[in-house]
Nucleic acid binder design. Structure first.
Lengths: 155, 155
DNA sequence: TGCTCCATGTCAGTAGCCTGACATAGAGTG
DNA sequence: CACTCTATGTCAGGCTACTGACATGGAGCA
């Protein structure tokens, strides 16, 4: 029952997972009253910042598969939060846009999520926040670069 | 199709999610050939470092619910990777331990996962890795502290 | 034009995890 | 001993996201 003083707490990977888990839990807690999931919020936020994104692009931005995003988008269409043309204007890409309802819901969610991020960063000064951004970006790039080199051959 | 140069890349929360997603994907890639999931690996790693942990303790350490961990533990028991006493020696707690098979499987998985973490940290020097640990710990603590203050009333 | 390659959208089936709820065992209190 | 509180293990049901597979549309090349 004691705090696990094991060396897991000395692993960046474990800490990264713990931090992500804590952030996700905190986000779910504030989004649940709004009837939203984290992926749902991410989708709307992406559309607010880049209107007309396709389903596949939204999936990549929200870190889920395009199949999962497709299911979500159908649901959001039914709920009138987003709109997609019935037929693709060019190719197969269906550009998605927020409705007024979607924008209104996003406004509430965005405020709640921003508050969570503020809480998360409350113990860090400006320089430390910049360091966090830089370190995380470096880690992401290293993982992606090596995945390209090791995994899927050629690219 | 261009890289999203939006300010999402300036959000620690978004970067945290991206890094965690990339790490999880990289871990899944190396664990799949071994027939393991990330939670499965986490469970075995926890048991190696702290033999005799209960299901609930394992769940907390792997950041899943005790129900999910219970399902996993039954599966691992069937596969002979862990053992639990038929009856609780004290209270309801069922202390879990690795079998030799579990230890052997973990050895392979642990090496693969360590390699992933090495790759992730390849762009950071010693000081930057220490900073990453400290920053992540601070963020986790801030989220937990405020969750206790805001969410579940009283403590 | 015809061919290859890639990306997108979609359908079907599966797996992992979650919430809700219940009974039980121990600690603390009177 | 009786009561309360907490933590654990468990069952039931549902949701989210995933893997696998397929057809279509556009870009590049001969």
């Amino acid at each position: 029952m004691e705090q696990p003083g094991v060396d897991l707490d000395a692993s960046v990977g474990y800490l990264l997972k713990e931090a992500s888990s804590a952030l996700r839990a905190a986000m779910e807690e504030v989004l649940r009253p709004l009837g939203m999931t984290v992926t749902h919020y991410s989708c709307l936020e992406l559309l607010a910042q880049r209107p007309g994104l396709s389903g596949s692009e939204l999936a990549r931005g929200a870190f889920v598969t395009r199949q999962s995003m497709n299911v979500l988008l159908r649901s959001l269409e039914d709920q009138g939060q987003v709109t997609r043309p019935a037929a693709a204007p060019v190719g197969k890409v269906l550009p998605t846009r927020l409705t007024d309802d979607g924008r209104a819901l996003l406004a509430q969610a965005s405020a709640a999520v921003r508050a969570v991020e503020v809480r998360m960063l409350s113990g860090l000064d400006e320089g430390e926040r910049a360091s966090a951004l830089r370190l995380l970006r470096t880690m992401v790039r290293s993982l992606h670069d090596d995945a390209r080199a090791d995994g899927p051959p050629g690219g």
